[in-house]
Amino acid sequence: MRAISRIADRINTLIAAIVGMMLAISTIAVFAQIMVRFALPKLGIIIAAPWTEEVARYFMVWVVFLGVAVLLRTGRLIAVEIVIFMAPPRIANIVKLGAVAVCLLFFGIVAAIGFDWVAMSAIEVAPVMRIPMNWVYLSMPVGALIAIANLIIFAMEIIVGSRQAAGEGVEAVE
């Protein structure tokens, strides 16, 4: 189990780095758009860069699904954890495993409709860049599959006792 956890951690660190990079690309794309509309005309250069918006938006969609998958590695999705914190550790673990089962059901459905969606959208292209929209839509089933793998490892860690349900904080920003 230790070995599995370690490998999973490494893979998730890599995915997290990719996710951070995608956010950076989105940021740079929007910054480029501001330059094009706001700064360049002052220098007499008038160009349009409608692709910046699509680049920013599409990378952000990937950020969401990959990022959610990474958060599930340590159970850090925003949740109401009062019961987990109040209950004795044994009960907390059982409740948490129940919640993990619900999540597995959810991401199973998401993966299934995600692949259906990709199959159905094969003809769609992006309005400006004219790339197949499936480059964007694939994020949902891919993210869901990684999420499922992470949920299973998370549950196994609770079962073998290498992780406490009430251990991790939640990344809550409201």
Binding site: Q33, R37, P41, I46, I47, A48, P50, T52, E53, V128
Partner: peptide, 9 residues
């Protein structure tokens, strides 16, 4: 763009 405007999304 061809008409000289700057199209903005």
């Amino acid at each position: 763009d061809a008409l000289g405007a700057q199209s903005t999304p």
